[in-house]
Design a protein around this nucleic acid. Structure first.
Length: 895
RNA sequence: GCCCACUUGGCGGAAUUGGUAGACGCAAGGGACUUAAAAUCCCUCGGUGAGGAAUCGCCAUUCCGGUUCGAGUCCGGAAGUGGGCACCA
């Protein structure tokens, strides 16, 4: 491992030669300072500049206090692109901010008695320093933090606009309730159905909460996915599934006349089905315990009331997955089959029917739906098959314990008999429609976005509750509604509810005393529009200025796959909603390109006896025959080396980026992050890997010694070495390779294939070494190749390349130097190697001038010894020729 | 259960999108330099067979089958691994 004391020794020993080794710390600091000074003010785009804009954005971090390797990977990837496009002459927006609201700050306040604001600010300061030490080309002047009232003021205003447009509304919804703490819990605070702090079994409670009407945009959100060509297919699939469009039919079942009169009920029950073809297989109907009809029935039926309570007390997380035994209770009501007045169908209440989906009511067709079948078996209901699979006999076909969900033809279904499923769906829907008993309907899995959180550290919801006027929006000129500073965190629950002074206010309408809403927004709200704010972050008048119109869409958004659904979908929704509220003109999709990076993984280590996890720095590999074993560094105890998993605190398989940067430097860390694994795949962190990257820095440094010194006429010692047995290339070849490398690496960077780009740059490095400077011309060529190497490497490892660039006597700093162009003529190969195949098998290779004639190639190919030998007595039937690639001789044995 | 992705040496991965499989790197082994170590440099490195050697052959991209002059790449099937959703009617 490199550490500073070693470096000092090295320096003393080789005092005759300065800069023998690359010492990162001083150099990196120096360049970070110089870049910062050279940085131009954030640019406002004019029409012309907007033509060449690139908005590069990485998902902004939550200020936890320390950067982790995931951040290093994320921001390095973005930084390479930002630096690359800047060199290409683009106007680049590459900002950074903080997703600063959220639960951890509140927890910290509870545990360490530190105000969330103080905690967050300290964390931001610490993390900013760490990010800066990575040498990121970020516009720090446009930094934003979402907990700043200057930021969330606009969010409150947006909310009022959404309210005006009826895109925000209030309704009752279930929350997790901790009965011991008397407080609402976030989903992540519920562990195995219990409160994380109290351990009490969590209950469900209904509270009035705010919702955003994302479902209004469901069709657009689905359709537009097709236009997102630069998004990973995987993410689009996940979003499609999440939106969950399904086409079907709503069907009205009349409730038996006598009953509706008696109990003053509605006349019919509306169910949703994607399989109206199986309507004659319906042997029961079921409604959700939370269905309005069920709630009415509960008033006169104690059993139903009990069942509802039971169903709602179960934690939803605990009862995940389909159970064979399906609970339920008869409602006491009967329904009339919509297509046959003579059929009476019993109505059940069951918790396997979800109120949130469809109409909260279903008709059960046990023969052709597994869940209905399970329910029917549990409650001994009739199972009536109406779809006959191919090859089955209508008289003998029976359902046992698996429902038939495949194809077939309808039977026992009157006018549907003999039809295929699709034809029957159409005909049944038509019949229902004619009778006025149903119609086509599209249903979505997506539900409206509940944004109320019973938390302190979030953006306050700007409404007032007045006894007389109801819910009254706060007038715009009173915004922002700031969070009160003086609050206590020593008790569980929402501190805002206890902040009497803040809570009590006057109704803007009638001036009577009223109360503020004590809920705050889900933190996903802040992250749904921050990328718009970055374009003009200090604009106090407008949340989103015309600058956003010019900078958006984000050209390349980079982040983790974990945000594939929620954050990205919310942002897509928000952009549309804001457009409808007049904040933007004509912006549909916020992120044109999306890149989801892989995770950073590391092997896990466990003490063999205690099974406790150990940090990587606590263990070492055995020596000699013990090579595959691991031991505790201090105690020598046996350690189990586990498989590689995502770095996480709980498994202790983490490596601290700060330590890596101070030991090896930012460039080494960046190099390692980028070099081997493709960015979308998981990256395996290893000590050998970082050492390898560090070695490369030294190699580049030495290579500079040979190439720069020679170029400016000095003398180099290390050049004096034996050429015996070493492969060498001519300076002409080096020139060609240099231009090819510019061409290929540029393409790779554009496509975010950084590992390939780096492989090609390393290869160029090898070739520079392999080229012997025999004369002045060759020396100039080598020097040019090396300068090109520095320019190409700069986005990846900016500090060392900048330093070497300056050492080579260049006036302009590399960060402001244009990307190299390649010369097509110089990149062109004069000679190519063709493969010669016989019946598709490789037999020889031939070297020929590029683009040579088929006849020449054939002649050459046939002359090869090995070709002749393999051909033997066989006769040539046909020759396939692909220019510059292969000659395939098709031969047939002569008999 | 449904949907999706992936599978190439000891390891991470290349392969110009159907045309010489294994670039680049890590690890490993051997050697040079050194009193020694570190660093650096050189050589070997998918398996296997023949040969003193240069070489030559066979088998290899998870497995089975297909299309093609030619398949890691396209199509069909199977297995394994990972991921998403999950009582969604």
């Amino acid at each position: 491992m490199l550490n500073s004391s070693d470096n000092k020794n090295e320096k003393n020993h080789s005092s005759r030669k300065q800069n023998a080794r690359y010492e990162h710390s001083a150099i990196e600091k120096r360049w970070q300072k110089l870049w910062n000074e050279a940085k131009k003010k954030p640019q406002n785009l004019d029409e012309k500049a907007a033509q060449k804009k690139k908005y590069i954005l990485e998902m902004f971090p939550y200020p936890s206090g320390k950067i982790h390797m995931g951040h290093v990977r994320n921001y390095t990837l973005g930084d390479v692109l930002a630096r690359f496009h800047r060199a290409k002459g683009c106007h680049v927006l590459h900002p950074m901010g903080w997703d600063a609201f959220g639960l951890p700050a509140e927890n910290a306040a509870f545990e360490h008695k530190e105000h969330p604001q103080t905690w967050t600010k300290n964390n931001i300061n610490a993390m900013r320093q760490q990010l800066k030490s990575m040498g990121l080309d970020i516009d720090w002047q446009s930094e934003i933090a979402t907990c700043n009232p200057k930021y969330y003021k606009h969010e409150q205003e947006m909310f009022l606009d959404l309210l005006d447009k009826k895109l925000a509304y209030r309704k009752e919804a279930w929350v997790n309730w901790d009965p011991s703490e008397n407080s609402v819990l976030a989903d992540e605070q519920v562990i195995d159905g219990k409160g994380w702090r109290s351990g009490a079994v969590v209950q469900k409670r209904k509270l009035a909460q705010w919702f955003f009407k994302i479902t209004h945009y469901a069709p657009q959100l689905l359709e537009a996915l097709d236009s997102l060509e630069k998004w990973p297919e995987k993410v689009k699939t996940m979003q499609r599934n999440w939106l969950g469009k399904s086409q079907g039919c709503v069907i009205r079942f009349n409730i038996k006349q006598k009953q509706t009169e008696q109990e003053n009920l509605q006349e019919n029950l509306v169910v949703f089905s994607t399989r109206p073809d199986t309507i004659f297989g319906a042997t029961f109907c079921a409604i959700s315990p939370n269905h309005p009809l069920c709630e009415k029935l509960a008033k006169t039926n104690k059993q139903i009331e009990t069942y509802i309570k039971q169903a709602n007390s179960q934690d939803k997380n605990a009862s995940k997955g389909a159970e064979k035994e399906k609970s339920g209770i008869h409602s006491g009501l009967s329904l009339i089959h919509p297509l046959d007045q003579n059929i009476e169908i019993p109505l059940f209440v069951s918790d396997y029917v979800l109120m949130e989906y469809g109409t909260g009511a279903i008709f059960g067709c046990p023969a052709h739906d597994q869940r209905d079948l399970d329910f029917a078996r549990t409650h001994s209901l009739e199972v009536k098959p109406v779809v006959l699979p191919k090859g089955e006999d209508s008289l003998t076909f029976a359902i046992t314990d698996t429902a038939w969900t495949g194809g077939g033809t309808l039977f026992r279904s009157k006018f549907l008999d003999g039809l295929t499923i699709q034809a029957a769906i159409d005909k049944a829907t038509e019949a229902l429609q004619k009778k006025g008993a149903g119609e086509r309907k599209t249903t979505w899995r997506l539900r409206d976005w509940g944004v109320s959180r019973q938390r302190y550290w979030g953006c306050p919801i700007p409404v007032v509750h007045c006894k007389k006027c109801g819910i009254v929006p706060v007038p715009r000129n009173e915004l922002p509604i700031k969070l009160p500073q003086n609050v206590s965190f020593d008790k569980p629950g929402n501190p805002l509810e206890r902040a009497e002074e803040w809570r009590k206010t006057k109704c803007p309408n009638c001036s009577n005393s009223a109360e503020r809403d004590t809920d705050t927004f889900d933190t996903f709200v802040e992250s749904s529009w921050y990328f718009l704010r970055f374009c003009d972050p200090r604009n106090e008048k407008k949340a989103i200025s015309e600058q956003a119109q010019k900078w958006l869409p984000v050209d390349q958004y980079i982040g983790g796959i974990e945000h594939a659904i929620l954050h990205l979908l919310y942002s897509r929704f928000f952009t549309r909603a804001l457009t409808d509220c007049g904040y933007l003109e004509e912006l549909k999709e916020p992120f044109e390109g999306l890149f989801t990076q892989g995770m950073v993984c590391h092997a896990t280590y466990q003490d063999e006896k205690t099974k406790k996890f150990l940090f990587p720095y606590q263990v070492e590999r055995g020596k000699g025959t013990q090579k595959n074993k691991w031991f505790h560094k201090e105690s020598g105890a046996n350690v189990i080396g586990g498989r590689s998993e995502k770095m996480s605190k709980s498994k202790k398989n983490i490596v601290d980026p700060q330590k890596v940067i101070s030991d090896y430097g930012a460039d080494t860390a960046r190099m390692f992050m980028l070099s081997d694994s493709p960015p979308e795949r998981d990256l395996e962190w290893s000590g050998e890997g970082i050492e390898g990257a560090a070695r490369f820095m030294q190699r580049l440094w030495r290579l500079a010694d040979e190439n720069i010194v020679e170029a400016i006429g000095g003398e180099s010692e290390s050049i004096k070495r034996s050429d015996e047995g070493i492969k060498t290339i001519s300076s002409e070849e080096l020139e060609r390779i240099t231009h090819q490398t510019i061409r290929d690496a540029t393409k790779d960077i554009e496509q975010l294939r950084f590992n390939r780009a780096i492989a090609k740059l390393r290869s160029l490095c090898n070739n520079i070494e392999a080229c012997r400077a025999s004369d002045k011309n060759a020396q100039a060529q080598k020097s040019h190749a090396f300068a090109t190497l520095l320019r190409l490497f700069h986005p990846f490892i900016p500090h060392i390349t900048e330093e070497l660039w300056q050492k080579s006597g260049k006036q302009k700093i590399l960060t402001e130097t244009a990307w190299p162009d390649f010369d097509e003529d110089k990149a062109r190969e004069e000679e190519v190697v063709l493969a010669v195949q016989i019946n598709g098998k490789m037999r020889a290779t031939i070297k020929l001038p590029a683009n040579c004639e088929q006849s020449t190639a054939e002649k050459q190919a046939l002359q090869q010894d090995n070709v002749q030998r393999n051909l033997g007595v066989a006769s040539v039937k046909k020759i396939i020729f692909v220019p510059n690639k292969i000659v395939n001789i098709i031969a047939e044995k002569t008999s």
